[in-house]
Design a protein around this nucleic acid. Sequence first.
DNA 1: TATTGTTATACTCTATAACTATA
DNA 2: TATAGTTATAGAGTATAACAATA
Lengths: 161, 161
Amino acid sequence: MESLSKRTGGARPPDATLEVHLGYWLRLVSNEVSGAFARALHARQVSVAEWVALNQMSSSEAATPAKLAAAMGMTRGAISKVLDKLERKRLIARTTSPRDSRVQLLSLTAHARRTLPGLTEIADSNDRHFFSALAPGEQASLQRLLRRLAEAHGMTRIPVD
Amino acid sequence: MESLSKRTGGARPPDATLEVHLGYWLRLVSNEVSGAFARALHARQVSVAEWVALNQMSSSEAATPAKLAAAMGMTRGAISKVLDKLERKRLIARTTSPRDSRVQLLSLTAHARRTLPGLTEIADSNDRHFFSALAPGEQASLQRLLRRLAEAHGMTRIPVD
DNA sequence: TATTGTTATACTCTATAACTATA
DNA sequence: TATAGTTATAGAGTATAACAATA
């Protein structure tokens, strides 16, 4: 750094402003990977937010709009629209809770349970496509580093966009 | 994989669908890092697309809307709107090329040259904030892995969203 | 009064396609 | 005809705030 500054008369390399940031490379790769995934999902008429919601509902006992909103870091209003779309596609059902009739209980339809494995396979194959460029040990390193960052900063919300 | 299936009787752990994907962790961390950066830029009334455009213009000799569109992976129409906003903020100027009057030459204003270092400092400090959770060697590893993925898949567009 | 879910509204971002003016 | 840039229009996605029903 010091020597570079001296060599170039104190001026920065003019085109190095963006690429020096780790955040730049993270965003570059993440956008490509997620973008390809979103396009593959889109071919099945499913958005990433819808896919995440379906997954949440399949892995948690009692899903409600409010719980989904908290888990996905979206407002209840936004979740309501996502659920409207899923309901129109006959992938979820809403039923009023018998315990508290303000609460809507969300459940996957049989159609959704048949559809979900195919969507998971899209995610699997998208992962394989991009990360097979790394050796297995490198993939493990990458995951370890990312998980460490997530833990260090308390990242808990499921990323949707 | 095989042994896991046998051990669990062929059933998958029901809540492992999302977190097993490297793409999931990549998106989780990237969204947090980029989101924090976008919010910090927003406090200076600048969007990420605007910041990228300013950087491109500061590091390339002859910037034009078409070149920016290609570099940033956006349509010319979308770039035109970004440039409108930058012009309204007096950060760029558009002048007609003397060689080809269809072409608009883009340049930074003096105000932009005074503003840009502050924005770069936001990017620097955002990087420091998030990645200081990793040791220097780990940060280097992460960058190396990400760059490898970018190269392996020919990722060249500057990520904007 | 507080909470759940929905709806009304608005805003940001971007794409598509039509358009103007040059070449 | 082809190209550079702009503009008109539309769509996706999400937030804010007002609302109805229930606790």
